[in-house]
């Protein structure tokens, strides 16, 4: 059995085949993976918020899309991945509770998705697949032996993207 590496909220992990990186219980958070299919090196990042510049001081860059992604990219490259081969997948960004007068913070899921895509574009990394939005939680994992990104839900089954 390949090693299962847990990625907590506002954290990221990198590894290589045959490890599996997993992050549990994403709501408005996003699980974004980077993967090099040739060297089979990749990473999974679990961000909470879109933009570190809109937040007050934080010691943890992995909490934000704009600071977390470059950090993980560096680590994945340091492990020996090739940037031109890297592809990204992402899932999450739900709005868990429907309120008629939902504030901006309740719609943070949508903003997270947009921010991640923007950062990926800036970094020049191709987004291969996504499973975002809705009002339900997701557990996500990426299998570094083949790059399959699995999204598990409670009532909506699971799928590979």
């Amino acid at each position: 059995m390949a090693g299962l590496i847990k990625v907590g909220m506002a954290d990221y992990k990198v590894g290589r085949s045959p490890s599996i990186l997993i992050s549990y219980g994403l709501g408005s958070c996003i699980g974004v993976s980077l993967y090099d299919p040739v060297s089979k090196i990749g990473g999974l990042l679990h961000i909470m918020l879109p933009d570190s510049r809109q937040a007050r001081a934080s010691d943890n860059p992995a909490k934000f899309a704009d600071t977390g992604l470059p950090l993980m990219l560096n680590d994945v490259l340091a492990q020996g991945a090739n940037k031109s081969r890297l592809v990204a997948k992402l899932a999450g960004g739900a709005q868990m509770f429907a309120f008629a007068n939902a504030t901006d913070i309740m719609k943070v899921g949508t903003r997270n998705v947009e921010a991640v895509k923007q950062v990926l574009r800036t970094m020049g990394i191709k987004l291969l697949a996504e499973d975002t939005g809705g009002n339900y939680g997701r557990t996500v994992q990426i299998d570094l032996s083949n790059g399959v990104y699995k999204v598990k839900t409670i009532d909506r089954g699971e799928k590979d993207i």
Partner: peptide
Amino acid sequence: AMDMAGAILNV
């Protein structure tokens, strides 16, 4: 909502 604790606490 009925879902994963992590997802609900996200809010």
